[in-house]
Simulated scan of single mutants.
Amino acid sequence: MKPLNIFNKLIFFINSLFATALLLAYLLPYIPPSTFPFLSVLSLGMPILLVINIVFLIYWVIKLKKQFLLSTLVLLLGFNHILSLYRIEADKYEKQPEDIKLLSYNVRQFNRYNWIEGDTVTNQIIHFIENEKPDIVCLQEYHKRNDIKFNGFKYKYEVITNEGERFGQAIYTNYPVINKGSLEFEDSNNNAIYLDVLVNKDTIRVINIHLESLKIIPKVTEFQEEKREKLVSRMGNSFKKQEAQVKQILENLKDCSYKSVISGDMNNSAFSYVYRKLAQDHLDAFKEKGKSFGKTFDFDFIPLRIDAILVDEAMKVKEFKNFPEVKYSDHYPITCTFSL
């Protein structure tokens, strides 16, 4: 086999840099953001690092060069991460009477500031949710208005964390409510709220989370133009807050004897520390029954999945859907059908 020419040596050097970056990203779920907050930014770039290493692998295979082994080994080491990024389409499923369907959606204050042109966005969101016929609805960035009404739900629990802006979170359901509560994140407009609901003869805790926002503008070009030091510092601080918020959520679950479902906007990827902690003793509905990239946030061509539904390991996921065609917010709604 011929030695590499100068061009391919340069290509392999670049390949080595991206392979090292991917290896480093594999470690991030095990490193608290408070330890190295600036490194946590890499977790959002995991999809890109995986794809780039796949491209290098294909390049070396076409060239019939042994250098393909580098990206091959690195990708094999992170095979579970690939499953978090992409899933082959699952079989279609028809909801059964004993099943529970949960819908989670960051509604971006129902387009309060006209981020999306048109006066019908609020009604479109309401109609979409009603047409999906969920048993439980978890809304993040909920805006308290008199015209926000969902027909067909007996119970509503809303917590407004910013009284001036009148937004917060809400949970709607038809299941009898046994208990409810709000975790009240410190120094944050974000929050987690929960309901204990009675399903048949069983009680489950549904936690609607909205972790600290990263305040990312959903355009790659604008993201790149922001000063690097300022961007990394701001995001690092958000990741540290998320770590504390997840600890608070886990403390709440520790004191709960019921099976639980965690849903909402993590503002972080499935390759992050906060995701790994939240997913302990839970099944990621996307990894169980999702398809394609499961994209939940509008960030140009990058398939960011920062919203999730995590159900107790004692439950069974029957179906998971994301709706990238529903463009009424900067997030896309997700649903999970599961049984106890």
Rank of each mutant, 00 (worst) to 15 (best):
K2N: 13
N8M: 05
K9V: 00
F12N: 10
F13D: 09
F13T: 14
I14L: 11
F18N: 05
A25M: 13
Y30N: 13
Y30C: 09
P33L: 08
P37I: 10
P37F: 10
S43W: 06
N53C: 11
V55Y: 11
V55D: 06
I58P: 08
F68G: 07
L69H: 00
T72G: 11
L73D: 01
I88D: 10
Y93D: 12
L102P: 08
N106K: 09
V107S: 05
R112P: 00
G118K: 06
Q124K: 14
H127D: 15
P134C: 04
E141A: 04
Y142L: 02
K149F: 14
K149L: 14
F150D: 06
F153S: 05
K154W: 03
Y155E: 06
Y157M: 10
Y157W: 06
E165R: 00
A170I: 03
T173S: 10
G181F: 03
L183E: 03
E184H: 14
F185A: 06
A192F: 03
I193S: 04
V197M: 04
N200F: 01
K201G: 09
K201I: 05
T203N: 01
L211V: 07
K215I: 01
T221L: 02
Q224E: 09
E225W: 03
R228I: 15
E229P: 02
S233G: 00
G236V: 08
A244V: 15
I249R: 06
L253G: 00
D255N: 13
C256I: 06
Y258L: 11
V261K: 06
S263P: 01
Y273E: 01
Y273L: 02
V274L: 00
E288M: 13
K291W: 02
S292W: 15
S292T: 15
K295L: 06
F299H: 14
F299W: 12
I302Q: 11
I302T: 11
L304M: 11
A314F: 09
K318T: 00
F320S: 13
P324N: 11
V326L: 14
Y328T: 12
S329K: 08
P333T: 11
P333G: 13
C336P: 08
